[in-house]
């Protein structure tokens, strides 16, 4: 170490402020934003074979976004004062953007879902397009929450919001693949063989898109780690915390190998690319990986002592 033989005799370290409620909140908003974007894309393309997926995701997006803020309220030390967020807002705080985005986005999502289910194509398209910036900012702002907490060098990077949006897409697509596969296997008995074949093809296509988005995520994570390792001393320590410290198993093992490389191999591999089971396993792994990523970011980011 640069200080030679230094031993801390006494110091005060206060407890970690943000616990896994926050990570779970990030996970759920990610799932919601991801499925909303897929739903809108399905609606905009307007092809008949995408219809079931468009409907499933239209329900998933607002439903998940009702669960997500509950985590936030449970995390408060004074949960009954949550309404202070709306009454005493502070425009320089990313949490304030969040409290308004988290109100506007589910309302838009519900309107959109109603339009999709009542088959009003034109209105669904309009509300879908209006909803996409909201969906992206509802997840992008969570990246800003971490990035603007300047004290923590693992969070304080410009890549953070983008990493969050891309990982949201991954986990969202993963969830859609899992749910559409369940529908395909157990709940779609009336459809004929041709319809079935087409459903399977759409699910496999989604899984392939997921694999390409994972590659994008891997690139972002690689550039983030590379810059951390060459930046100032705190960032350097944060980079090694992920690569060889306490969080190496979760980061390298679960997030990168189990949650990224293995799903890419399963989905794009020559033997398993036609298999629905492989796509579902890949989607489950991807979601485990993204959950691990939330843990590593939220808890790992706060581990380096500051006092």
């Amino acid at each position: 170490m640069e200080h030679g033989d230094v031993n801390v005799v006494y110091s005060v370290e206060h407890q970690l402020p943000l616990i896994m409620y926050i990570g779970q909140y990030f996970f759920f908003t990610g799932l919601s934003a991801g499925s909303f974007v897929i739903s809108v894309i399905a609606t905009l393309l307007g092809r008949k074979e995408f219809k079931p997926i468009g409907k499933i995701t239209a329900i998933l997006a607002p439903a998940l976004l009702i669960i997500a803020p509950l985590n936030l309220i449970l995390d408060l030390e004074q949960p009954l004062r949550f309404w202070h967020l709306f009454l005493y807002y502070n425009w320089t705080s990313p949490i304030t953007y969040g409290s308004f985005l988290l109100t506007a986005y589910p309302i838009m999502g519900i309107i959109y879902a109603v339009m999709v289910f009542t088959n009003r194509q034109k209105a669904a398209k309009v509300f879908g397009i209006l909803g996409i910036p909201l969906a992206i900012s509802v997840h992008g702002y969570t990246g800003f929450i971490l990035a603007l907490a300047k004290a923590r060098s693992l969070w304080n990077t410009a890549a953070m919001p983008t990493i969050f949006i891309v990982s949201a897409m991954i986990s969202g697509i993963g969830l859609v693949v899992i749910i559409s596969a369940i529908r395909y296997r157990w709940f779609d008995k009336k459809a004929d063989a041709e319809q079935k074949e087409q459903d399977k093809k759409v699910i496999l296509q989604l899984a392939q898109i997921m694999a390409y988005v994972i590659m994008m995520d891997l690139f972002l994570v690689l550039s983030d780690i590379l810059v951390l390792l060459t930046a100032h001393s705190d960032a350097y320590e944060a980079g090694w915390l992920l690569l060889s410290g306490n969080f190496a198993f979760l980061f390298v093992g679960v997030e990168i190998i189990l949650g990224s490389f293995l799903p890419i191999l399963l989905v794009l591999g020559p033997k398993s690319r036609k298999s629905l089971t492989a796509a579902v396993i890949a989607s489950i792994l991807v979601n485990i990986g993204v959950y691990a990523m939330r843990f590593v970011m939220v808890i790992g980011g706060q581990t380096p002592p500051l006092s």
Binding site: H14, L18, D75, L76, R81, H84, L85, A151, L306, S307
Partner: peptide, 14 residues
């Protein structure tokens, strides 16, 4: 204060 603890996470001095 609602106890969101974001200030604790943001403070560089603990």
């Amino acid at each position: 204060c609602i106890g969101c603890k974001y200030c604790i996470a943001s403070c560089p001095y603990d």
